[in-house]
Design a protein around this nucleic acid. Structure first.
Length: 505
RNA sequence: GGGCCAUUAGCUCAAUUGGCAGAGCAACUGACUCUUAAUCAGUAGGUUACAGGUUCGAUUCCUGUAUGGCCCUCCA
């Protein structure tokens, strides 16, 4: 600990000691509170002249000799306190022993100052928790142009490492985490309202499946076996459809052992839902309903701004066909259809100057489907700003989905993109055990060829399918990303309360 | 894994060509009984991320390391 920190802390320790010498308990068990800060302000008309008791953290002091003002912040907002020696007598001197960051309870009459600020004229106050460390002092100035933040606690590393300090002093940081909580609540409310049953399936799994990703591995001592942290809930939720459940959903963390960037985080929150007798169109209706309901509930509008650009969530959302759109975009290369053209021609496209930078993405694990996926990601996805539903994915990229009857090369599947982020992914779920086995075997082949993210063959899941699973629509929604959109968060870590950083040695 | 950039007081940031490391906020002392980035006067606070190198002299130039950010790569 730096010398300077020690001395600031030392000063506070001495104040703590002096409080105790004066018979003040700096850490009492409980506090009486009659009103939230915001409610005192909003109900001023009724509360003027009435006694209130508020409690919170001291965020500012403005002393004037025998009178002092302080700002007291609780979860609802801020209220100004007015300490006057006439009201407080000997207790007024205790103010010298208070610091920014301390928790305080204060009781007194509500009034409005000369300058019009709703304030509590404190007649009695109690220390609730003495702080020993000095929080960063962030001040906001009200100007004609709006609020200006001074000395903002803004260093990304400090903010993420001491997230409780970040959220203590930066209200927007707190709000983004709160928005995440609201998304969870809105999603549950919507799914429950649609008659879905919320279930829990294993996080520790003997085999991982349901997505293409590298897992985290752990070891169970008593079972004497390696287990994986799930990368998806999918295969267990489908077993529940075999079991006789018809509408199930799960909200939980999935774990994928990949790097962190603006939109990816190794433990992220996924909503998965499965509906018997539904298909991917059923799940699209559900997705639109859930996301618009969440936006309306949390933001009060469907017309949002994300990172300075308008995002209108008003349905219907445009639909584009993945392969069809790509074919249009690739007309200059004279391929015709990327799914049926000679594979050599498709490969040649990656040698063309304009696309040569994409070659490393397919080199070494070439397949037509992968090539199509890479091209779509590079050429089309960056343009998908407004909510866009993408259909007609190659079946090969969708091993857990049913094939389209009219065109077996394509899967019954959609992905939803908003602000170029993949938000949702849904299929008509494969329920033919033999088709499913073939798809798994193709994955096993890709795996053997070096694709570390290809899926494993899950015999128990296949056995479950052999008992019969009804035709089913399935859906996954990345809830952190929904929260990003609704919180206007530039980075997925902003909506996560305690994002992981490298351990500092 | 690769490229670029950053790291100075508790917090936010300066420091000219390589020449005594500064300011605001916070803290401390004092003044002030309606302030709100309160104000005014004063005081204290530093291993310039870490380890080396070049130099009479390094916050500054060089090398390495650590951590972080952004952009690539991979996952949703």
């Amino acid at each position: 600990m730096a010398e300077e920190t020690k001395s600031l802390r030392q000063i506070r320790l001495e104040k703590l000691k002096r409080l105790r010498e004066k018979g003040v308990d700096p850490y009492p068990v409980a506090a009486a509170r009659s009103h939230l800060a915001r409610d005192v302000v909003s109900s001023f008309a009724e509360l003027e002249g009435e006694q209130v008791a508020v409690a919170g953290r001291i965020t500012a002091f403005r002393t004037h000799g025998k009178a002092s003002f302080a700002d007291l912040a609780d979860a609802s907002g801020k209220i100004q306190l007015y300490f006057k020696s006439d009201f407080l007598g000997d207790r007024f001197e205790l103010l010298d022993l208070l610091d920014l960051g301390d928790f305080l309870a204060a009781a007194g009459k509500v009034f409005k100052t000369k300058t019009g600020e709703v304030t509590v004229a404190v007649e009695k106050f109690d220390v609730l928790a003495k702080g020993l460390l000095t929080p960063p002092v962030v001040k906001t100035e009200k100007t004609a142009a709006g609020e200006v933040v001074h000395d903002e606690f803004a260093d990304p590393e400090k903010r993420y490492r001491k997230r409780y300090v970040d959220m203590m002093v930066n209200e927007p940081a707190r709000d983004r985490v709160l928005t995440n909580a609201k998304v969870l609540r809105a999603a549950r409310r919507y799914m429950d309202g649609e008659g879905y049953v919320e279930v829990e399936t294993p996080i520790l799994q003997p085999l991982y499946g349901g997505a293409n990703a590298r897992p985290f591995t752990t070891y169970h001592r008593d079972l004497e076996t390696n287990l994986y942290l799930r990368i998806a809930d999918e295969l267990y939720l489908k077993r529940l459809l075999v079991a006789g459940f018809e509408k199930v959903y799960e909200i939980g963390k999935d774990f994928r052992n990949e790097s962190i960037d603006r939109v990816h985080y190794p433990e992220f929150t996924m909503l998965e839902a499965y509906e018997a007798y539904g298909d991917y169109r059923t799940m699209l209706t559900l997705t639109v309903g859930l996301i618009t309901a969440a936006a309306a509930e949390i933001r009060g509008t469907l017309k949002l701004e994300y990172q300075g650009r308008d995002v209108d969530l008003t349905p219907p959302w445009p639909e584009i066909r993945m392969v069809g759109t790509l074919n249009e975009r690739m007309e200059d290369y004279g391929l015709g259809d990327v799914l049926t053209c000679p594979e050599k021609d498709l490969e040649a496209v990656f040698r063309a100057d304009a696309l040569s930078e994409l070659w490393p993405k397919v080199e070494g694990r070439w397949s037509r489907a992968r090539a199509v996926d890479v091209l779509f990601d590079a050429l089309v996805v960056p343009e998908l700003w407004r909510p866009t539903v993408v259909t007609d994915y190659p079946a090969e990229l969708s091993p857990l989905a049913k094939r389209q009857r009219a065109n077996p090369a394509l899967a019954e599947r959609f992905e939803l993109y908003i602000a170029t982020m993949e938000i949702a992914n849904a299929f008509s779920e494969q329920n033919d055990p033999e088709e499913q086995r073939r798809a798994f075997e193709a994955q096993a082949k890709a795996r053997a060829a070096g694709d570390e993210e290809a899926q494993q063959l899950d015999e128990d899941f296949l056995e479950a399918l052999e008992y019969g699973m009804p035709p089913t629509g399935g859906l996954g929604i990345g809830l952190d990303r929904v929260a990003m959109i609704l919180a206007d968060a530039p980075n997925i870590r902003e909506v996560i309360a305690f994002p992981q950083l490298r351990i500092k040695k």
